[in-house]
Design a protein around this nucleic acid. Structure first.
Lengths: 120, 120
DNA sequence: GCTATATATCAACATATCTTGAGAGGTTGA
DNA sequence: TCAACCTCTCAAGATATGTTGATATATAGC
């Protein structure tokens, strides 16, 4: 994850429609969702508007697409999301571990059953 | 961290000058840096341009300022950065722990001596 | 109070981004 | 092949964002 790629990622996430699409697709998992289903879930965006944002997200590497019959299915690209997160944390971890530690602690999320630091 | 605050955070980080300022201030730690020093480190941005971006970052809650004599010292707000990271991770952790796990593993950063998953 | 220093603010312009509406490209099943 | 469906592309206009140069505000030392 270099600076340019991080910039593209943050820019992609800085727009309401796109941020909602990403969160929707993260929840949807690897199976993904068809463009039309995404549009419905968003409350009915025009197809051109939706396509504009989907293309933007795909170019930023946050989502990818595959065709299935008439449908085009979009899904989240988790490594890119992880890369953005890592990019944000790199510097503080390098230079100031004592600062980074509480951040890292807050991130011990509910992936492990019984822990719920993020959602409480 | 609600959606609006996350959007503001990502928008703030989606601009080259601002991203560099944030990374600079993260490295600088709690002591922070004077506006002029930041400008120099960036290779000489005009004062109005610098001020524009510093104000933008401060309104997004990513940095804060304090006056010391003639200088205005800016420093990173680590909880906001952590909040952005948490916001990105929340959904996958909730719905798909098996997907989130590798992401979380990649984040076991060098805060603990001996581990260097992020920087290798 | 005056001057130098450090930074913020304002207005104007340039550029980038988003939305809309019309139309085109593939895909399916009859 | 035809009609229905799903999605993309293009052009135009609206809005938001970033840059520049000039000016204003605040502090420090003489």
């Amino acid at each position: 994850m270099d600076e340019q790629r991080a910039l593209a990622g943050f820019a992609a996430l800085s727009q309401e429609t796109r941020l909602r699409i990403v969160r929707l697709l993260v929840k949807a998992g690897p199976e993904g969702m068809a463009a039309g289903a995404i549009g419905e879930a968003l409350g009915g965006a025009s197809t051109s508007r939706l396509s504009f944002h989907l293309t933007h997200l795909e170019q930023a590497g946050l989502i990818r697409s595959r065709r299935e019959g008439r449908f085009i299915i979009y899904s989240a690209v988790f490594p890119t999301l992880a890369g953005l997160i890592a990019f944000l944390m790199r510097d503080c971890c390098d230079g100031h571990p004592e600062i980074c530690a509480p951040v890292a602690a807050a991130l011990s999320c509910s992936c492990e059953p019984g822990k719920d630091a993020l959602h409480g």
